[in-house]
């Protein structure tokens, strides 16, 4: 015989109105957004190669950074773009931005205002960093860049001729770059940079992607894809590594601050996962092992 109080609780849990769940999640995340706790973090085996690759850049070297994301995935990927750009510039290297997403130029604008102009006011567009702009065509843009940059871009997004850009002096094609960084939320993005850029030209590719996209890209790690920042956690790990190696820089840890609400959301989901299964295992009418024929 089953305990009536237990089956009653199980029934109530089983019939729980989903709006209670939404309310608990909203309150829990809301409180953590207000408190903004900062947890310690350290780079994982996937994140560390990205950090070390950029840490080894020589001053004056140019790095191709592809901003292949839109506002939908910006909360996860934008902190990566900010942290990597800061790191590249701290090393004295020259980021060359490009985007395969139509929304990319607007994402670059935010990067320009919030990182390039705010954190590095002494640097000048065109001289210390380059934005080539958006090109339609996805994988074929990469293919053309592999052959010759000028085949795709006559100049930068502000109309300067390619030959007048110091960051692209000596960089005629994709293979001339020491590193390609693709911050990607889908197609075209990281996968295309690996298959059509890194593999045929031999240029090392690292990247960042949404948490949900990480398992797919790990299939290319570590030979075709040398490192990856997976979701907000990856961005937080990168920020922690940057703060650890360059403590004087004092950059804000945007992803680290958002990890609090994400952690709370994960815990609430896990809690309801457990409660849902307790209700399922104790529901009346569920056959017990000894009742099986």
């Amino acid at each position: 015989m089953s305990d009536p109080s237990r089956t009653g609780l199980a029934e109530r849990l089983g019939r729980l109105d989903r709006r209670w769940l939404y309310l608990v999640l909203l309150v829990a995340v809301g409180v953590s957004v207000v408190l903004r706790p900062l947890f310690p973090d350290q780079p994982s085996v996937f994140v560390r190669p990205v950090f070390e690759r950029i840490e080894r850049l020589e001053p004056g070297q140019s790095v191709l950074v592809s901003l292949d994301y839109s506002p939908v995935s910006a909360p996860e990927i934008e902190p990566m773009a900010f942290a990597i750009t800061r790191h590249v510039l701290l090393r004295g290297a020259h980021p060359v931005f490009v985007t395969l997403f139509p929304e990319g130029p607007a994402m670059y604008e935010r990067l320009r205002v919030e990182v390039l102009e705010r954190d590095f006011p002494e640097l000048v567009a065109g001289r210390d960093w380059t934005m080539l702009g958006y090109k339609a065509g996805g994988r074929m843009v990469i293919n053309a860049m592999r052959q010759e940059m000028a085949a795709m871009f006559a100049g930068d997004a502000e109309g300067r001729r390619l030959g007048d850009l110091p960051g692209l002096r000596g960089y005629r094609r994709l293979g001339d770059f020491p590193l390609v960084v693709s911050l990607s939320s889908g197609t075209p993005g990281l996968k295309e940079w690996i298959l059509y850029g890194g593999d045929p030209s031999g240029v090392p590719v690292v990247g960042g992607c949404t948490g949900i996209g990480t398992p797919e890209y790990l299939a290319y790690f570590p030979s075709q894809l040398q490192g990856i920042l997976g979701g907000l956690k990856g961005a937080s790990e990168y920020e922690a590594a940057l703060a650890d190696r360059h403590p004087g820089a004092g950059f804000p840890r945007r992803a680290g601050r958002v990890m609090g609400p994400q952690t709370v959301a994960h815990v609430v989901i896990l809690l309801f996962l457990v409660l849902g299964n307790v209700a399922y295992l104790r529901r009346p009418g569920r056959r017990q092992p000894e009742e099986r024929p």
């Binding site: 939404y22 999640l25 989901i269 849902g276």
Partner: peptide, 21 residues
């Protein structure tokens, strides 16, 4: 776009509670 994406958290929580058994 951000609002639509944020709503996913609530759907995931609800789906995890009801379907992940």
């Amino acid at each position: 776009m951000s609002t639509l994406f944020a709503l996913l958290a609530f759907f995931v929580a609800s789906a995890a509670y009801r379907a992940f058994r």
